[in-house]
Amino acid sequence: MRRMGLVIGLRSEVIPEYKRIHAEVWPEILALISRCNIRNYTIFLREPENLLFASWEYHGEDFEADMTLMRADPRMQDWWRITDPMQVPLSSRKKTEWWAPMEEVFHHD
């Protein structure tokens, strides 16, 4: 199992819409997330900084293959066409990243 933590900004004017669509995530998106071996997926919002923090556990055997499957899914691409313009990637992220990964420095079960 691999735990992930990522961060990205959120445009202030879209916060109500972002919350609304995440309260009603399309069933196909939820099924794909599960099919790609992601469990315990949570997104937190920190206002007034408007930062999103995502946390999940990866329970698969081939993370790159599962992420390739996710990126290739047409319905996920539709979802990202809605959510990506709402987000503000951190300037410190790598050019190949959208959400910036974070280093886990502590965990307690």
Results as ranks from 00 to 15, higher is better:
74 P>E: 07
38 I>Y: 04
95 K>G: 13
24 E>I: 00
12 S>C: 02
73 D>T: 09
70 M>I: 14
7 V>Y: 06
32 L>K: 10
5 G>Y: 08
84 D>W: 08
73 D>M: 10
31 A>Y: 06
42 T>W: 12
83 T>W: 00
36 C>K: 07
64 E>I: 10
77 Q>C: 06
21 I>K: 00
16 P>A: 00
68 T>Y: 12
69 L>V: 09
105 V>K: 09
54 A>M: 01
39 R>W: 07
20 R>L: 07
3 R>N: 09
4 M>Q: 15
5 G>L: 07
13 E>S: 09
18 Y>S: 08
6 L>F: 13
38 I>Q: 13
83 T>K: 00
53 F>K: 04
38 I>C: 03
46 R>I: 14
33 I>T: 04
101 P>N: 06
105 V>Q: 09
61 E>R: 10
51 L>C: 05
15 I>T: 13
61 E>M: 06
12 S>L: 08
46 R>N: 13
68 T>L: 15
69 L>R: 11
90 L>N: 14
108 H>T: 14
62 D>Q: 05
79 W>A: 03
98 W>L: 07
100 A>T: 15
51 L>I: 13
15 I>Y: 09
48 P>S: 01
52 L>W: 01
75 R>N: 15
92 S>C: 15
41 Y>C: 02
37 N>C: 06
44 F>K: 09
58 Y>N: 03
62 D>S: 11
88 V>Q: 13
92 S>H: 12
85 P>V: 03
47 E>L: 02
50 N>Q: 08
17 E>M: 05
19 K>E: 11
25 V>S: 00
106 F>E: 11
49 E>A: 10
88 V>F: 13
59 H>M: 13
96 T>H: 12
6 L>T: 07
42 T>N: 09
102 M>K: 11
87 Q>A: 06
